[in-house]
Nucleic acid binder design. Structure first.
Length: 479
DNA sequence: TAATATT
């Protein structure tokens, strides 16, 4: 983690420390100086930072107000992507106050639309004191909202949410200087009156936490994409397995949306990955037993993979877990009532026949990966495409693909299971439309098996994938 | 009726 740390002035010998009244901040031991900060130092949150500026670029701007104890640009945990904000702690509290008054909303960094934010970080805060206000009239301005709330305490921020056209969305955020003030506002205002033009009475509640926001967004997207059953997203039902499934869902969301060039999908997918990671990180109340399993979701280290004593299907995640607990007679419960291992019966129209009837198998051109898809799986760098198909037992036939899926999306979907050496969606020559089936080749059979285990029966929208070994070319087929 | 970001 890149962090700029102040270098103190060295003394000849021994130790030196300073205080807030003080001269210099730092503990010097011989050649090394360890920066020290005041005990009443304030950690500042810095927002609206251009994403091309790193710690070293920001340092000069802030050093003007005092010696910096620590400056850290926030990065995405998985992708390393610059989040456009940072934390800054000065050695002296006074420096922080000076910087805040000199910079907060006072200038706009190059390339930004909004002025820089310099204010105490949430971690310095006094608890939950930010309110969401719903069911406002569309005509009500920030000032109107302020007037409504000002009797309950000191308002630090008041923002009416607006669309791109500037029209109010009928809701606002109001931040008080203390939790008690916010609570008082809730007690007095929530449900108490109906604003002109609003469809029901005023809503005043504490604003969502980040986790709640993420869940809300996921629900929204899920609804749009039809991926999940309505209103049901659960985490942790089967530990690491659902982690793997989350990754799949994330990939699917990105891929599906990607065909519409919707950048939100990538963001959403990244959020889902984060949720999946939470899962593995143990923020899961569901009891899990140690793994005796034979199939480990790809890309997840074996030590991080618990298994499931009693698999419980979750609506939407109905491509069900590998039978990894060595108890084939256990009776899984599937709350969505759909059996996880579908597609056992042969289909009447065999797309294999079409596949073999004149379409060349993919033979090794670089796949047209889009940027956001690569971004999705930072630990799966672009593979070198060797040849295709792979050895026997490495090649999968996939049916019931979404119409929108192209080669890149198909590959993306299977990357978590191993090295994909080719991925090809078959396309109708006349219409250029996907035939909704394709082939994926891995470089080894166990990747292929893992992919079958996890992805066969995997639900996308209304359809379920069929994933099975591709038939060998020379196999006798009774057709 | 839910947002520029908060280790």
């Amino acid at each position: 983690m890149a962090t700029v740390t102040a270098n103190g002035v060295q003394q000849e010998n021994g130790f030196s420390t300073t205080n807030s009244a003080g001269r210099m901040n730092g503990l010097t031991i011989g050649q090394n100086t360890i920066p020290m900060k005041d005990h009443d130092a304030i950690k500042l949150f810095i927002g609206q930072i251009p994403r091309n500026l790193e710690e070293k670029d920001l340092k000069p701007l802030f050093e003007e107000f005092g010696k910096i104890y620590e400056l850290t640009v926030l990065k995405d945990r998985f992708t390393g992507m610059h989040k456009g904000c940072a934390f800054l702690t000065y050695c002296a509290r006074e420096s922080a106050l000076k910087a805040q008054s000199a910079l907060h909303e006072q200038k706009t960094l190059p390339g930004m639309n909004r002025p820089i934010q310099v204010k105490p970080a949430d971690s310095e805060g006094r608890g939950d004191r930010k309110l969401f206000v719903g069911m406002l009239g569309k005509q009500q301005s920030e000032d109107d909202v302020r007037r409504l709330f000002e009797t309950f305490g000191q308002i630090e921020e008041c923002t009416v949410l607006r669309g791109p056209d500037g029209a109010s969305k009928g809701c606002a955020f109001v931040k008080f200087s203390s939790h008690a003030e916010a609570q008082a506002a809730i007690n007095s205002l929530h449900g108490g009156q109906t604003m002109p033009g609003a469809s029901s009475s005023l809503v005043v509640k504490f604003a969502d936490t980040d986790k709640e926001r993420t869940l809300r967004r996921m629900h929204q997207m899920a609804g749009q994409l039809g991926i999940f059953s309505p209103m049901t997203i659960q985490f942790g039902a089967y530990g690491a397995y659902s982690h793997a499934m989350m990754q799949q869902q994330a990939a699917l969301m990105a891929a599906t949306q990607g065909s519409y060039l919707n950048p939100m999908a990538a963001i959403a997918a990244a959020q889902m990955q984060q949720m999946a990671a939470f899962n593995v990180n143990g923020l899961v109340a569901t009891p899990m037993t140690p793994s005796s399993g034979t199939s480990t979701p790809p890309g997840i280290s074996a030590t991080a993979v618990p298994s499931i004593a009693t698999p419980i299907g979750v609506n939407g995640f109905s491509a069900l877990p590998p039978q990894s607990n060595g108890q084939p007679t256990s009776e899984p419960i599937y709350t969505n009532g759909i059996h996880p291992y579908p597609a056992q019966s042969p289909t009447v129209t065999d797309p294999l026949q079409q596949a073999y009837a004149g379409v060349q198998h993919y033979a090794g051109d670089p796949l047209p990966l889009t940027g956001h898809l690569l971004f999705m799986f930072p630990h799966n760098p672009p593979v070198v495409f060797l040849s295709s198909p792979g050895p026997e037992g490495c090649n999968l036939f996939i049916y019931h693909l979404p119409q929108e899926f192209g080669d890149a999306e198909l590959m993306q979907m299977f990357l978590p299971f191993g090295n994909v050496i080719s991925a090809k969606v078959f396309v109708d020559r006349a219409t250029n439309q996907s035939k909704c089936f394709g082939f994926v080749s891995f470089d080894n059979p166990s990747s292929a098996q893992a992919a079958i285990q996890a992805m066969n029966g995997f639900q996308i929208g209304m359809k379920r994938l069929k994933v099975q070994l591709k038939r060998p070319k020379d196999a006798n087929r009774p057709y």
